[in-house]
Structures are given as C-alpha cells and as structure tokens.
C-alpha cells in the first residue's frame, strides 16, 4: 500500500498538541494507523510538546499531594490486554467507534448507489462514513468549514487526483469538488466536517438535511 495523500504537517501538529476535536482526531488517528510517515511527524511534534512542558515555570502542588499519590501507588500495573486476532479493514481507533469491522456497518441508502452511516456529533463537528458504488458521486458539495476524508476501501477520483485506501484528503472552504467512486469494490470513506455540507443534487440535499448534514 502506497499512500500518496497525507494530512498537512499543521494538522498533525494540532493533533499532537491535543487541539483537534474528536471527529478530526478520529480521521487523523485512523490515517496514522496506516501511515508510518505521518506517525513520525506526530512523534516529532510531541517531542516539541515535551520541550514546552519541560520549559514551563513549575507551579507547586498543594501540601500533601506527594504523600497522597504515594499512598495510592500500590495499585497493580495495568495488565496488557491481548491483541485481537483476525484480519480487519477498519483499523483502530475507528473499529471501536464502529463496534466492529466495516462489513458489520448498518448502512442507510441515501440515493442511488450512495450509503451513509453517521457516527457521532460533538458541537458542530460530525463524523460519518459514506459508501459509494462504482461511478457514483454524491452530486457533491461545497465546503463551508474544514473537512477531512479518509479512503478506507475502493477508491475515488476528483479534480485533485485519485484516492485509495489510506489516502487522506483535506478540503478548505469554498472548494467545489465532485468525487466519483472508481470501478471495482465499493468506495468507503471516513469523513468529518465542522460545518453543514451543501449538496448540489436536490434529492441528496433533501435526504442529507434529514440526517442533519
């Protein structure tokens, strides 16, 4: 697997700093499970976090804090949980959010060959999966906020290039793009958006509104 499209270093830095919200962190962490190159950048940004922590002006804890913690130290160390066995298409952390692998997802048909699975919403940020049959596009949307799309299965193509498993696309406001699922197996993407999507197809827009896009 060769990943061609990566998140920008500024997103990886924000993830390492703990500044990205849960929906964005889920897309980035799932990409990281598939991408050694970006894991290295996150480790480097975390080292910067360590240096910042080290350089902070220390603030003394309340009296007795050390004694209190020492008295709680006897807790047995956390046992390492056994690694799950089997082959999965959805890596962690995504699989825990789905409660299973991609083949157990309960899809809702939006229109034609487009299926949808909402995951969660925190504030304005939404996390969801979209599955498209070959040749299908979502008629697609303009973006008003930040949106990330991570390809998990199959592939899709739009004006900016071709996206396959592990590829991450980051779109900024005012981009109109029309991704179309490639031939072959259904294309499945994990996406997040921090603003309402605007679909150009009226039928998808109608159903999308019902789902709270």
């Amino acid at each position: 697997m060769t990943i061609l499209h990566h998140p920008g270093d500024e997103l990886l830095l924000s993830y390492a700093a703990g500044a990205t919200d849960e929906a964005m962190s889920l897309v980035l962490a799932t990409h990281l499970a598939l991408c050694p190159q970006c894991r290295r950048t996150v480790a480097e940004a975390e080292a910067a976090g360590g240096a910042i922590l080290e350089g902070d002006r220390p603030v003394l804890l309340s009296d007795g804090a050390l004694q209190s913690v020492l008295s709680r130290l006897d807790t047995a160390p956390t046992a390492k949980s056994a690694a799950p066995l089997g082959a999965f298409t959805a890596p962690e952390p995504l699989r825990s959010y789905l409660g299973g692998d991609l083949d157990s997802v309960k899809w809702t048909n939006l229109a034609g060959g487009i299926y949808f699975k909402p995951l969660f919403q925190r504030g304005k940020s939404r996390s969801y999966l979209i599955r498209s049959k070959a040749g299908c596009g979502v008629g697609w949307h303009t973006h008003h906020g930040e949106e990330l799309t991570l390809c998990l299965a199959g592939g899709y193509t739009d004006e900016t290039g071709q996206y396959a498993r592990g590829d991450l696309q980051s779109t900024t406001p005012d981009i109109l793009h029309r991704p179309v699922a490639d031939e072959g197996e259904d294309c499945i993407v994990l996406a997040m958006s921090d603003a309402r999507l605007k679909f150009s197809s009226p039928i998808v827009a109608l159903i999308g509104r019902w789902f709270g896009f």
């Binding site: 799932t30 499970a33 598939l34 690694a83 066995l85 089997g86 890596p91 962690e92």
Partner: peptide
C-alpha cells in the same frame, strides 16, 4: 492508533 491492532501498518 493501537500498534497491537492486526490492521495497524
């Protein structure tokens, strides 16, 4: 990510 996950690359 979980380095012990079978789907981890």
């Amino acid at each position: 990510f979980d380095p012990n996950d079978p789907a981890f690359v």
